[in-house]
């Protein structure tokens, strides 16, 4: 094979086939054909397709990112709404507690007032009874004193002068 090829390269320098000018036309022709074919394939098919794929992908990615940001904003809004609802509920609860407290206080006050009234009424009644008892007790004392005095007078040998004794005793007690 070396002998075969050497016939082709003999014309130029035998050392370097690159400088064998007899093959230049052939190489240049096929190079031009190749480059034109590659250019047509790339510009007609390959490059538009890859460009479309890349554009579509970057579009999808930016859409997804936008959607994600949307969802994030929604989540933040939902959290805010939740917090708002929580605050409202707390305020409502506090209001109800205060209202209940006020109601209970009013009822309690009413009950206490009623109880106080009842107690003072009872106290007045009791006082009246006590006064009655005291009065009756005083009367009894007068009677006992009168009868005792009468008995004493008679025992001492005096005349049983009822009226005088009565008057005397009454005067003594009152005095």
């Amino acid at each position: 094979m070396a002998t075969k090829t050497s016939t082709a390269t003999d014309a130029a320098t035998p050392g370097m086939p690159q400088l064998d000018f007899s093959t230049f036309g052939n190489q240049i022709f096929w190079l031009v054909v190749t480059l034109v074919v590659i250019y047509l394939i790339l510009s007609r098919v390959a490059l538009p397709r890859i460009a479309a794929v890349l554009a579509e992908r970057s579009g999808t990615i930016s859409n997804d990112v936008a959607a994600a940001e949307d969802l994030k904003a929604k989540a933040i809004a939902a959290e805010e709404a939740y917090n708002q609802a929580l605050t409202d509920a707390r305020a409502e609860a506090a209001k109800i507690v205060a209202m209940t407290k006020a109601d209970m206080k009013a009822e309690l006050d009413a009950a206490i007032a009623k109880a106080d009234a009842e107690i003072s009424q009872k106290a007045a009644e009791s006082e009246k009874v006590i006064n009655d008892i005291r009065a009756s007790a005083l009367e009894s004392v007068e009677e006992v004193a009168k009868s005792t005095a009468l008995a004493l007078v008679s025992a001492l040998g005096g005349k049983e002068d009822t009226d005088a004794v009565d008057v005397a005793v009454s005067t003594e007690i009152k005095g």
Binding site: A2, K4, T5, A8, T9, M16, P17, Q18, D20, S22, T23, G25, N26, Q27, I28, F29, W30, L31, V33, T34, V37, I38, I41
Partner: peptide, 30 residues
């Protein structure tokens, strides 16, 4: 030797249109 341009078929002289190993390897590049 590996750089020698030679016809792919037969053993003739190399014209500009001859199918050579240049043609083959450029086609493979395509």
């Amino acid at each position: 030797d590996q750089f020698v341009v030679k016809p792919l078929f037969g053993d003739g002289s190399i014209q500009w249109y001859t199918v050579t190993n240049v043609t083959l390897w450029m086609a493979l590049a395509v």
